[in-house]
Amino acid sequence: MTTAFIFPGQGSQAVGMGKSLADAFPVARAVFEEVDAALDQKLSALIWDGPIEELTLTANAQPALMAVSLAVIRVLESEAGLSIGRDAAFVAGHSLGEYSALAAAGTFSITDAARLLRIRGDAMQQAVPAGMGAMAALLGAELDLARAIAHDAAQGEICEAANDNGGGQVVLSGAKAAIDRAIAMAGERGVKRAILLPVSAPFHCALMLPAAETMRAALADVAMQAPVVPVMANVGAAPLSDPDAIRISLIAQVTGTVRWRECVVAMQAAGVTRFVEAGSGKVLAGLVKRIAAGTTSVSLGTAEDIVNYKSQNG
């Protein structure tokens, strides 16, 4: 069985995530303590006690989700003998989850990943004035149709495919008026549903260019090692191991489409038969089931999940 470890992105946050891990396993508690120290903030208290409105702020949600994912990995290493280099063929993450994947594979330290994600979250939030951008999910649309709708809805404004999540789910991002036009057009083009998403900024489109420049500077200052296994990168949907190529890809990811469907297809084509989602929620495992028939997927986010996983995997 060939395994890929996958890491969730924004939207998977929940108050209390990771608490059972920290209570049961000192190595998990140490991850949260390291993130708190890196950010000079008691982020762990916000993660476990809320309020959800503050946790959901981009600058908090991004390092918080990474912390939970890396806590899962550290527990798997200590309790189940996991070695990413030995036991995984690839790592991959959805948007901010790509930083979690890279930290799990040794490219970034947890401290550097937390600081980068705080910078990234702040920069993405500040790139567009509040209320000027929006995102919408098109359900029952493949990428080509979504891109055609985005093109026709733009009318001189930014409107682009932000996430190709697979299973007929594509997210558009751009100027608020253009996204409103896209939602109106979607029904006329045969899209089952078009839903305005409750997000604070229009991620993964050209409006994020100021944030991409911020990340170019931030990534230039951080030590990066080659990952112990390739990362299946969001923007290229291709495996990367060279730190310079990874740096370039992470900068492009801020404004580029998250090609999640193609990432999963590529990993399956390379022989992956099992996907292990490490972190909060079960979103990615659900997407994998729709994209990669014949593979198995499991989500690990709680102490109970890991005990069950360990019993099933020796």
Rank of each mutant, 00 (worst) to 15 (best):
M1G: 12
M17F: 10
K19Q: 14
A22M: 02
D23H: 08
V27T: 13
V27A: 14
A28H: 11
V31P: 10
F32D: 09
V35N: 07
K42T: 04
K42I: 00
L43G: 01
L43Y: 11
A45H: 15
L46F: 12
L46P: 12
E53Q: 13
E54M: 05
E54Q: 14
L57I: 00
T58E: 06
A61I: 01
A61V: 02
S69F: 07
V72T: 03
V72L: 03
V72H: 01
E77P: 03
S78T: 11
L82N: 06
I84T: 03
G85L: 06
G85K: 10
A88D: 07
G93P: 09
G97Y: 04
E98N: 10
L102N: 07
L102D: 05
A104Q: 02
G106I: 00
F108C: 08
I110C: 10
D112A: 12
A113Q: 08
R115D: 07
L117E: 06
L117P: 10
R118H: 11
R118C: 05
D122T: 13
A123S: 12
V128Y: 10
G131R: 11
A141Y: 07
A146M: 05
A148F: 05
A162E: 09
N163I: 01
N163W: 03
N163T: 05
D164F: 00
Q169L: 05
V171Q: 03
A175T: 14
I179D: 12
A184K: 15
G187Y: 04
K192M: 10
K192Q: 12
A194S: 13
I195P: 01
I195G: 02
P198N: 14
A201S: 15
P202A: 12
F203P: 00
H204S: 11
H204P: 07
C205E: 04
A211G: 07
A220I: 00
A223H: 10
Q225Y: 03
P230A: 06
N234K: 01
V235T: 15
V235E: 12
A238Y: 05
D242G: 05
I246R: 06
I248L: 15
S249W: 00
L250F: 11
I251M: 11
A252K: 15
Q253K: 09
T257A: 13
T257V: 08
V258M: 11
V258C: 08
R261M: 11
C263K: 02
C263G: 12
V264G: 04
A266W: 05
Q268R: 14
A270N: 10
V272Y: 09
T273H: 14
A278H: 06
S280M: 05
G281W: 04
L284R: 06
L284S: 04
V288A: 04
A292D: 06
T296G: 14
A303W: 02
A303Y: 00
A303Q: 08
I306K: 10
K310C: 04
G314Q: 12
